[in-house]
Amino acid sequence: MTTAPPPGSLLTAENLRKAYGPTLALDGADFSIHPGEVVAVMGPSGSGKSTLLHCLAGIVPPDSGTIMYDGQELSAMNDARRSALRRSEFGFVFQFGQLVPELTCVENVALPLRLNGRPRKEAERAALGWMERLEVDDLAKKRPGEVSGGQGQRVAVARSLVTDPRVLFADEPTGALDSLNGERVMELFTDAARSANAAVVLVTHEARVAAYSDREIVVRDGKSRDMERVV
């Protein structure tokens, strides 16, 4: 499928290929997302979902293919520029192990702002605002080891949103949570993202998590299928 990216797309990828050693993780994958849209990336484990997310987010450069973000070719940028982009325009939520255990929750949430050079006080005030929205402001002074999994994940969501990113990347954000906690996290997450008009790339293998998306694409054997365009 080499159709031109739909007009108005914020982030598009075409014909991505990526190999880790002998294993081909991506074999001609396509992707596109609009501002404010939530797209679920589904597929069996080992299908290349996470690799697609890593490529789209500029964490890993693809071996071939192009990624366009907001009119710029992401796949042609050097590591420093991609890092800067990740710091300022993207937000991330992973499955677990992403909060710095020594920092308090509010310091964790403020971290991306501080990486962008914002003063500590100001960054922590903004962080507290987001923690309130995610209903974890009472945990501000606690360390990640002292809060539950669901709470920790909400802290992580707050952190992903604190820079007002234009694209959010979530890799199995509820993978380590029970369904009740997971759903609450997904609700808060998608609500916050929609109200901020941020695009969300949501990698998951759970249909009930994918149900929070606007549409889904399926990755199988490194190839993507955009279900809307297929149907």
Partner: peptide, 15 residues
């Protein structure tokens, strides 16, 4: 894992 995720959200290696 933690360090990798820090780099993912844009932490400079220098930091």
């Amino acid at each position: 894992k933690l360090l990798s995720s820090l780099v993912a959200f844009g932490t400079r290696r220098r930091t």
